[in-house]
Design a protein around this nucleic acid. Structure first.
Lengths: 253, 253
DNA sequence: AAGTGGTCTAGACCACTCA
DNA sequence: GAGTGGTCTAGACCACTTG
């Protein structure tokens, strides 16, 4: 009951750039992903073996292996010893990345913009200090924003950050996501931990999001860390559930 | 501003088993994880370099590298070229794995059990057939279950599976998760794609979960695939949000 | 200049599946 | 027995950060 193996056209791998900044394994995985999305590699189809691919592309086996691993981690491929590598059925969602909601909306052509409802700097109380990993009394910035997509309110975003933000920085939040603004300031996110839940909307939240009073809200609480392991941002967001949801891919280990 | 490097006690890596079935990189990553959780490696602390660790453990660099990568993927460590590997702050949630809710509850000492509300086999209509990747008219099994934790109703679980399930199999669902039962039947999950959302409860759902009418529900829709890329199960679940939420860790790529 | 992680190579042996 | 992926080794060169 073994699937026949699908031979990919060699042209798919033309123009691999060995000198550029883009790693070879990523160039290969990008081309494989393209082949899967375009159904050149049909769902359920079997990929050539690592060794065969490596030989054909004149790459080492670890490099090809890494390219395949990228797609396995993202749930597009599945592999089994003794069998081979197989394309998973079903349409592929983009999945949750460590990007801001804003960028996701831009990417989906949803034309986002943001209204800053409140922005203030205050001294951290004990709970906030513990959450952000700063000393109590040190300055923290609180933001409250309303995010729109295609002119329709989508989410209420509340964030707390260590330190101060300039008025100019806050001004930029209208047409950009928080992460993009922080990135321009040199702060890069490395890891985030989040919890997704639900609750009923308050009267004010229903009003802001244009929902009926007491409607269900999708909520997300997130702490983001930079490459030094320090807290960059804590957020408590709520979404209109008829307009937004979280897509995830799980891979067994 | 470089963190001093923390030297791990050599005893931490005693007894690595080169002949057993457990891969070396996993043995190393498990020991590193232990050191992080026990705060032998404090949050914000810097790990020894890959090369140093590899030399000390008499392992190759790729093996040590892979061990570290496991923890980076799970959001416990963060690395930067030129800098080093650093332990991320904050307590560590277990994160969403491809395990059943049932196993998670057992693991958290929540004493789960399940009431099977309905179980039937019928011919697949077109929508269901498309969802499961089977031909229309072929048999599919529908399940509706109520999951309890510590005697309190937690979630309503609705699943559709290709094929038939024996009465004996269904009987096992009382004290076990669906994935465990399928695993005993030789079906292994490899990948799942899911979407998390929210909505208001119907009158019947509120009744079953012991919530007030119209309360907010956390919802999850999931399709699971086996190692052949075939659909094993489609589920539509809803959770009482004051009793359950989804924890996720995101890592920038 | 020295040290870090990121990429890549060219092999080797093993466990597993299938015909 | 042949073919698959899984693990492991021992190097090499590079880009980046810091002192």
């Amino acid at each position: 009951m073994l699937q026949p193996e699908a031979i990919l056209p060699t042209t798919l791998f033309d123009g691999l750039d060995r000198s550029g900044p883009e790693p070879l394994y990523r160039q290969v995985s990008a081309r494989l992903e393209r082949a899967i999305r375009d159904e050149i590699l049909p769902a359920g189809g079997r990929l050539e073996s690592e060794v065969a691919l490596a030989h054909r592309l004149a790459l080492s086996r670890p490099t090809v292996r890494r390219a395949i691993r990228e797609l396995v981690d993202r749930g597009l491929l599945v592999r089994r010893r003794g069998i081979g590598t197989i394309v998973v059925h079903g349409r592929i969602a983009r999945g949750v990345e460590l990007s801001s909601l804003f960028d996701d909306l831009v990417h989906a052509d949803q034309h986002p913009h943001t209204r800053v409802l409140a922005a203030s700097t205050e001294a951290a109380d004990h709970a906030t200090a513990a959450l952000l990993g700063v000393s109590p009394g040190s300055p923290v910035t609180r933001l409250r924003r309303l995010r729109f997509a295609d002119g329709v309110p989508l989410a209420i975003l509340q964030n707390t950050l260590p330190g101060r933000l300039s008025a100019a920085t806050i001004g930029r939040l209208r047409d950009r996501g928080l992460y993009a603004v922080l990135r321009e300031g040199g702060t890069l996110m490395a890891v985030a931990r989040q919890r997704i839940g639900a609750r009923s909307a308050t009267a004010e939240e229903s009003e802001l999001l244009g929902l009926t009073p007491g409607a269900a809200l999708l909520t997300m609480e997130r702490t983001a860390f930079d490459a030094d392991g320090r807290v960059v941002e804590h957020g408590h967001h709520c979404y209109a559930p008829d307009r937004y949801g979280f897509d995830t891919t799980l891979v067994s280990r």
